[in-house]
């Protein structure tokens, strides 16, 4: 019968509350995320197609975007390595001061980013504690793109640790012991036993860290040096446009950042889905 062949527009669920749940979700999402973003796109559209393209493809915009996304990628990758090690140490070992260390991980969340920026600059500037040690070797951190990366590493560290930690807690240490007993080398144990179940959580953490780092302004502004084309991040370009009362131009850079971020997040999400299927999760 034809009525059987026709699919209902949504599958019936035995769980109640789908209608109201979806309603609330869509309303909340619209008010908080979608409507402001739509306003941003509309504002950017007021620059006109020619203006949009000219601004989007200007060398200064491209260099700023490259720095913002490049530094955020590097910072997120660095945090993948150190985040996993920190999570590992916190989950698998007991040592005095562990609670304190665990709490310290979240500090970058709690600190106003401007404070973080000023503190990092004070330390990495040529007359600071660490900057002073590196200066004789000709290594500069503050006021270079390297400084931008340092600030982004700082603000995005908690994401990786906090996403990986609970998954690691669920993994049984017995598995690792079994692998060792079966004669696997330590490296092999890490590679084939410990890492695979962590991968989905790690990717989630990576996305969060990346997204956080791309949008970071407060801390970077103090340590970057802000030279156009060298150490000028895309969010600063937005602020500069606003200071010139060029709202449309600011929105254009905003929309560009949004588009790139969205593409990145979407592709990492699909990568994550792939990984989950490979590993036999649903």
């Amino acid at each position: 019968m034809s009525s059987l062949a026709r699919r209902p527009w949504r599958a019936h669920s035995i769980l109640p509350g789908f209608g109201i749940g979806l309603g609330i979700a869509v309303t909340a999402l619209s008010l908080i995320v979608l409507i402001p973003l739509a306003a941003l796109v509309i504002k950017a559209a007021s620059a006109g197609p020619a203006g949009f393209v000219a601004l989007a493809l200007s060398p200064r915009t491209l260099l700023a975007l490259r720095l913002s996304f490049g530094a955020a990628l590097i910072a997120a990758l660095v945090n993948v390595i150190f985040g996993v090690i920190i999570a590992w140490v916190l989950v698998r070992y007991d040592f005095p001061g562990k609670k304190l260390l665990d709490a310290a991980i979240d500090l970058p969340f709690a600190l106003p980013t401007a404070v973080a920026g000023i503190a990092l600059t004070a330390i990495y500037a040529p007359n600071g504690w660490i900057g002073g040690l590196l200066a004789p070797w000709g290594i500069k951190i503050a006021y270079t793109p390297l400084g931008v990366v340092m600030a982004l590493i700082f603000v995005s560290l908690p994401f990786i640790v906090r996403t990986v930690q609970p998954v690691l807690q669920e993994c049984e240490a017995e598995l690792e012991e079994a692998a060792a007993l079966s004669g696997a080398s330590r490296l092999r144990t890490i590679w084939s036993v410990i890492l695979p179940p962590l991968l989905p959580a790690l990717l989630t953490g990576f996305i969060l860290a990346l997204a956080r780092a791309v949008g970071e302004y407060g801390s970077v502004i103090f340590i970057a040096g802000n030279l156009p084309g060298i150490s000028e991040i895309a969010p600063l370009l937005i602020v500069i446009r606003l200071e010139q009362f060029d709202y449309a131009g600011a929105a254009v850079v905003g929309v560009l950042m949004l588009a790139i971020s969205f593409t990145l997040i979407l592709s990492i999400n699909s990568l994550q889905a792939l990984v989950r299927r490979r590993l036999g999760y649903v």
């Binding site: 600059t121 004070a122 500037a125 040529p126 007359n127 600071g128 503050a142 006021y143 502004i221 103090f222 040096g225 802000n226 030279l227 156009p228 600063l236 602020v239």
Partner: peptide, 21 residues
């Protein structure tokens, strides 16, 4: 010859006096 372009006057003063640049 400008190595750092701060966003405001106070920030520049700090770069010069506190950071020694």
């Amino acid at each position: 010859n400008v190595p750092i372009l701060d966003t405001g006057a106070r920030a520049s003063t700090n770069t010069f006096t506190k950071r020694g640049i």
